[in-house]
C-alpha cells in the first residue's frame, strides 16, 4: 500500500513537472519555481516566527493579567480566526487587481467587512470558550493516567 501510494505520487508529480516545463518557456518555469521557494521561505522564516512571537506575547499577557483560562482561550481562538481570514483576504483588503473599468470586481466595503469578521471572531471565540469547548479548568488532566485512552467529555466539569 505504501509503495503503491509513493509510486503513484511520484508518477503524478512527475507528470506535473513535465506539464510545467513543456507548456511554458524557461523564464516562466523559473518564475514559477521561484514563487514556490519564496512562499516556503516567507512561511518558515517570517510567518511562523511571527506567530510564535504573537503566541509568546499572548501567554505573557495572560500570565501578567491573571485572566482566567476561558478568557485566554477565547482570545487565542479569536486571533486564530481573524489572523487566518485576514491573510486569506490580503488581495481583497489591499484592493490588488482592482480596475476602475470594472466596478463589479471588488464591489464591497472591505474595511467594514473586516470589522464584521473581527466582531464575529471575538463572539465565536467567546461562545466556544465559555461553553467549555476550548479549554479545561484542569489542563493536562487526561495525560495523567498512563495507557488509559478514553474519550473525554470536553465540558464534563
Amino acid at each position: 500500500m505504501r509503495g503503491l501510494l509513493v509510486g503513484i505520487g511520484v508518477a503524478v508529480a512527475g507528470y506535473g513537472g513535465w506539464l510545467l516545463v513543456s507548456t511554458q518557456d524557461a523564464a516562466a518555469v523559473r518564475a514559477t519555481v521561484l514563487w514556490a521557494v519564496v512562499a516556503v521561505i516567507v512561511h518558515d522564516l517570517v510567518l511562523a516566527p511571527l506567530v510564535i512571537g504573537l503566541g509568546w506575547v499572548v501567554r505573557e499577557l495572560v500570565r501578567r493579567t491573571g485572566v482566567g483560562g476561558r478568557v485566554a482561550a477565547a482570545l487565542v481562538a479569536a486571533l486564530v480566526v481573524l489572523g487566518s481570514v485576514t491573510l486569506v483576504a490580503v488581495p481583497v483588503l489591499g484592493g490588488f487587481g482592482a480596475d476602475p473599468r470594472d466596478p463589479t470586481l471588488l464591489p464591497r466595503d472591505y474595511g467594514a467587512g473586516w470589522w464584521l469578521v473581527a466582531g464575529f471572531s471575538v463572539l465565536a471565540g467567546t461562545a466556544l470558550a465559555f461553553t467549555g469547548l476550548l479549554s479545561e479548568e484542569r489542563p493536562g488532566r487526561s495525560d495523567r493516567g498512563p495507557g488509559a485512552p478514553r474519550r473525554r467529555r470536553p465540558h464534563g466539569s
Partner: peptide, 29 residues
Amino acid sequence: VTQWYPWSFSFRGSHYAMAWIAIGSLLVH
C-alpha cells in the same frame, strides 16, 4: 480571484501543472 497577477508566468499554465505536483507529492507524503 481579484485578477491580481504580480508574477511573470501564466497563471493558468502554472496553477494547472503545480496542481499535479501538489497532489502527487501529497500522495507520496
